[in-house]
Structures are given as C-alpha cells and as structure tokens.
Design a protein around this nucleic acid. Structure first.
Length: 352
DNA sequence: GTAGGGTTAG
C-alpha cells in the first residue's frame, strides 16, 4: 500500500486499504496523509471522518497534522475546530507540529485572532510557526501586523528563511510598499539567501506591483531558476505597467523556449491583448489554449475574450462566444453578459 | 507542518 501511495496510485492504495482484514493507526494515517500529500484534501478529510466513526483507534500525531493541513487547504473550519477540541479534551500532547498546523488552519480559515492566541500560548516558536502566523496577516490584508510580527521574530533571534521573506514580499506587493520590498531585496542580497524560483517570482511581482517594472525585469533576467509562475508574473506585470506589447513578446518567447503555460498564464496573456486591443491575437491565443496547449478555458478566459471582442465593437461575435458556453451554469454567464452589456452601453453613449 | 503568478465591469 505504501508503495502505491508513494507512486500516487491512490485508487489502488484505497482498494488495498479496503481489503485489509485489520487496520491500525498506521494504515489509516497512510491513507490520509497520502491523500493530503497528493492534493486530494477532500478524500483525506473523508477518510479521517470514517476513521473516527468506524474505528476505536485514536489518531496519532501524523494523522492529526495531515488532516489539519487538508482543513487549511480547503478552509474547512468545522473539521479543523473539531480536531482542536479533540486535542484539548483528550489532553493530546501538543507537539510543535500540531501547534503549528492548528495555527495555520485557524489563519487560513480567517480566524486570525484565534490563531494568534494559540501562537502566543505556544511555548516553542519555530520559524514555521512564525511564518504561518505572518501568512495569516498577509492573506487577510493586515500587513502592518505581519511586519510587527517580523520585528518580534528578529528580536527573538529567529533567522528569516525563504518562506518568511516570500510572505513579506507578497504583503509588499499587495500594499505597494516599495521601500519595505527594497529592504527585503537588500536583505536577500546581503545574507546570500538563495533566490529560488519562488523568491524570484515574489520579487518580480513585488517590483511590478509597486510600479518598478525595470527592477522586475532585472530580477527576472538575473534569476536562473524560472518556471511558469515567474514568466506569468512578469507578463502580467508588464501589462499592468502599460507595456502589453512587451508582455506579448514575452509570451511568444515563453512558448518558443518551451516553458509550460497554464491557465493563469492565459489570463495574463489575454489581459495583455485586451489592454492593447489585439483582437486578432487574442482570438488566436484563446483558441490555441485548447488546440495547442490542451487547456480547457475557464469562465475567466471566456470573460477576457468577450471583453476583448465587445470593446472592439464585435458584439455579435461576443454573443456567439457566450452561446458556445451554453453548458455552463447561468450564474457563470452573468459576468459575461455584463461585459457585453457594458461595452454595448459605451457604444450607445458614444452614439455608435 | 510554513512560501510565489489571476481578467473584466460598475
């Protein structure tokens, strides 16, 4: 079972699990943590619930941590709180890992202040705990508190690692805090922090969102490790800084170099087309999603295309595109009709 | 166990 789980063959793993004559904590945990590890968070939680119902076994540390991580990812506060109660009631040994996972779960579910309470009560505060707490503040637009926490962390003698720096850079990008962002960049250089693809992307994004597109370009070209997200953040950044032509160049370069494109890349590229009114190119890009890249366009892609067509005055074509998505729910069609109508409205106002 | 990239309209 372990072997299949490691290979990600979850169907076989689950089947073997069901066929087992007896199951101990280790086998339940094996199934839960491999589901969580492969991103099947729903399944992880389902199995956890089944374990509580069907067996008299008590979950161990690793089962609790895996399930909590699934709760974090799915923002499932109900199950997360249940586990918290279980830990309190049974006086389960609150290990560092469990404490960290609980704080992370509360923060991701938006219960920042509850997370902070647990954070304060935690006798051991490692860098993971500090990061989880800082992420919570950043995620919910409380960047000041994240910065304050960062200062406390340094006073406590904890060295910031990549995770901490990325979290802060994201906060800078969100709030346009260029000076803080530059300071972090300086810290990275001075302390020889490895600029991996995640740090690189966070820097590019921070500079672009703070309006320093030149610095964003510089970081991008200096960073050796680049992936889909790095390219996408620059494409989007160029667009937001009024350089959509250059964003398109980057997109063509990305294709020719052979970097994988994903759905977010296409949102960025279609947005670039929209900004400079490249109808022909936008159409081509949109249809290449399915034909070349085997990516199923989502509502946001249709939305970009419809917007592009409507603004160009091609209202009938835009309507045809909406008709193409008839199989979608009515709810998801609403924003599409909105862009169509708003474009139509503009034309009416202009007397066209 | 903790990090990065997401359209549009009003």
């Amino acid at each position: 079972m372990g072997m299949y789980a490691a290979l990600g063959k979850m169907e076989i793993t689950h089947k073997l699990f069901d066929e087992m004559p007896e199951r101990d904590v280790v086998s339940w945990n094996g199934l839960i943590s491999s589901y969580a590890g492969h991103g099947s968070f729903d399944d992880a939680i389902t199995v956890f619930k089944r374990m509580s119902k069907e067996s008299n076994l008590k979950p161990d540390e690793s089962t609790i941590v895996s399930t909590l991580s699934a709760c974090s990812a799915l923002k499932n506060l109900e199950v997360g709180e249940g586990i918290h109660r279980y830990v309190v009631v049974t006086e389960f040994e609150m290990s560092v890992k469990i404490g960290n996972a609980l704080v992370d779960m509360f923060c991701k579910c938006g219960r920042i202040d509850e997370g902070r309470e647990l954070f304060e009560r935690s006798p051991v505060k490692d860098v993971v705990l500090w990061t989880a707490m800082m992420n919570g503040y950043v995620q919910f637009n409380r960047f000041d508190e994240a910065l304050e926490l960062f200062r406390c962390m340094q006073t406590d003698g904890i060295r910031p690692d990549n995770f901490v720096l990325v979290s802060l850079l994201k906060g800078c990008a969100q709030t346009g805090a260029l000076e803080q962002g530059k300071w972090i960049h300086g810290y990275i250089d001075e302390n020889r922090v490895t600029v991996d693809r995640v740090v690189g992307t966070a820097l590019v994004d921070m500079y672009a969102k703070c309006g320093c597109i030149e610095s964003a370009l510089e970081v991008f070209y200096e960073t050796k490790e680049r992936d889909t997200a790095s390219w996408t953040s620059l494409i989007y950044g160029l667009t937001m800084n009024g350089m959509s032509g250059r964003a398109m160049d980057l997109y063509y370069e990305m294709e020719s170099v052979g970097v994988r494109l994903d759905d977010i890349t296409f949102v960025a590229v279609l947005t670039a087309c929209n900004h400079c009114g490249f109808v022909e190119e936008g159409r081509r890009v949109f249809y290449s999603m399915t034909k070349v890249h085997k990516i199923q366009p989502k509502a946001e892609h249709y939305s970009c295309l419809i917007d592009l067509l409507s603004r160009a005055g091609l209202l009938e074509e835009a309507e045809e595109v909406i008709d193409e998505m008839r199989n979608e729910s009515d709810e998801s069609l609403v924003p599409l009709y909105c862009s169509l109508l708003s474009a139509a409205h503009t034309f009416v106002r202009m007397g066209i």
